[in-house]
Design a protein around this nucleic acid. Structure first.
Length: 426
RNA sequence: GUGGGUGUAGCUCAGCUGGUUAGAGCGCCAGGUUGUGGUCCUGGAGGCCGCGGGUUCGAGACCCGUCACUCACCCCA
């Protein structure tokens, strides 16, 4: 890159500026509220991990691990990867610290994948999610899915569908994959260009190929739910009845396999139909009963779900939902034309009392300061000029009122907090 | 990694078949007499026309390269 190129954010990354940040804050705040309501504790794990966490976790042959990870060596020659997803690092932490089970954690984190950016797809995106380790009770599957569902509802999303499937445990899956591989081999000439060569390596990938040629083959092929052993079939049935018991409709989607290799039994995905693009998955997850063992721990079943903040916001925009998610309005704007430290002291006092307060700088004119007060969104402006200062008073002006005369009055300096409490109702 | 579209003021965009000092709207700043926002009026600041090279008497316009943004494929959040 030329030295003359202006500096800007890296490809596929974005700055969240003030016009968007309240939405972000709101999404995270809502999720935190739901997570705590469901009894989850927040945890933080490093932004990068030993690459083996992901190779063994999400599977070396998965697209994400094989070609999309940001891998680097540190100065000590250790090989690390920026986290491409949220689950494997948390399971790594679980294995390392061996907390008591059931272990319930929620998180919000950036995730990094080296891909060509496009609508709804970035090199750094942000996910929030939960994980539960230490039980394979189908009630937990229901709980995790319902947390996501209620969360989307709270954000105002209505055009979201829950797709669900079960991969079975290792043996169910292997029996299925064997049959699928045979089926694909038999019809390999009809597969799309990409999969005609690669189907044998990971036959499951062909299931979510969107090309008509592959779909035609797999539609007539074996269906995952048919290969579930009795316990897995029972588990899946109980998840689905549990969901319908609380009014959550799930769409059985036999070809739903998802991109990571660690999934067993329940897998699910939330698609936002308002998003026209192929990137319409706003969240997803599933059970991973082998993962803790893969990462060196005791056999421990687990389930989790993750959701992309950017896609949630895109879906909200696509549905035309525009109610704010969090209030970050300014309460008071202090206008000071005395040239002394009146605003400095007043602002300190107001903020101390809990008001969101802003002021002007640089000795601007009163007119200029009033313009700033208006643009700040403040509900009231407090005016202090030489007159008020001399009289020990403050002029209160309600900025959201249309009537000049009614909107303004003068109070004594020492009565300002009480008056504001009355005016602003706090 | 492959393909399409686009790069002109802080933002959204005009700039006709190449022709003087590159424009608009919004935003920003300052005024519109005595200390007061939202509407209105006036003025002002602000552009290596993404970057490099080429064609030409002359390039924001044309050609090549490059970088970036964007959309799509693959796949996913």
């Amino acid at each position: 890159m030329s030295e003359r190129q202006p500096l800007q954010s890296p490809i596929g990354t974005h700055d969240v500026m003030a016009d968007q940040s309240p939405l972000w804050e709101g999404v995270v705040a809502h999720f935190a509220q739901f997570a705590y309501r469901f009894g989850f504790s927040m945890i933080h794990t490093p932004m990068f991990e030993d690459v083996r966490v992901f190779h063994r976790g999400i599977g070396e042959k998965s697209d994400v691990a094989s070609k999309e990870m940001y891998v680097f060596e540190d100065r000590g020659g250790r090989s690390y990867a920026l986290r491409p997803e949220g689950t494997a690092p948390i399971v790594r932490a679980f294995v390392q610290h061996q907390p008591t089970v059931p272990f319930r954690a929620w998180y919000v984190t950036p995730a990094f994948r080296y891909e060509r950016p496009q609508a709804g797809r970035y090199r750094q995106h942000h996910q929030l999610g939960v994980e539960v380790l230490g039980t394979d009770d189908p009630a937990v599957d229901v709980e995790v899915i319902s947390l996501a569902w209620r969360f989307y509802q709270a954000l105002g999303l209505t055009q979201v569908r829950l797709l669900i499937n079960s991969m079975g445990h290792v043996e169910c899956r292997e029996r299925f994959v064997d049959v699928l591989r045979e089926e694909l081999h038999e019809h390999r000439q009809q597969l799309c260009d990409d999969h005609r060569q690669s189907y044998a390596e990971n036959p499951l990938r062909v299931l979510d190929c969107k090309r008509p040629s592959c779909i035609a083959v797999t539609d007539d092929g074996p269906s995952l739910p048919d290969f579930l052993c009795a316990p897995c079939a029972d588990h899946f049935a109980r998840v689905r009845t549990g969901l319908s018991a609380i009014g959550i409709e799930s769409v059985l989607t036999p070809r739903l396999v998802r991109g990571f290799d660690y999934y067993t039994r329940t897998t699910f995905e939330f698609v936002a139909d308002a998003l026209g693009s192929a990137q319409n998955a706003i969240g997803g997850g599933g059970r991973y009963d082998q993962l803790a063992e893969e990462l060196g721990g005791k056999p421990t079943s687990g389930i989790g779900f993750g959701s992309g903040i950017e896609r949630i916001l895109l879906a909200r925009a696509a549905e035309g939902v525009d109610q704010p998610l969090i209030n970050r309005d300014i309460d008071i704007f202090v206008v000071d034309t005395t040239g002394h430290d009146v605003a400095t002291v007043l602002v300190d006092q107001l903020r101390g009392a809990g008001w969101a307060t802003l002021r002007a700088y640089d000795n601007r004119s009163m007119k200029s300061q009033m313009k700033l007060a208006d643009k700040s969104g403040a509900k009231v402006a407090l005016l202090v000029g030489p007159q008020e200062e001399a009289a020990g008073e403050i002029t209160i002006r309600e900025l959201r009122s249309a009537d000049f005369e009614q909107s303004q009055r003068v109070v004594l300096r020492e009565e300002i907090l009480a008056t504001l409490r009355q005016t602003l109702g706090k």
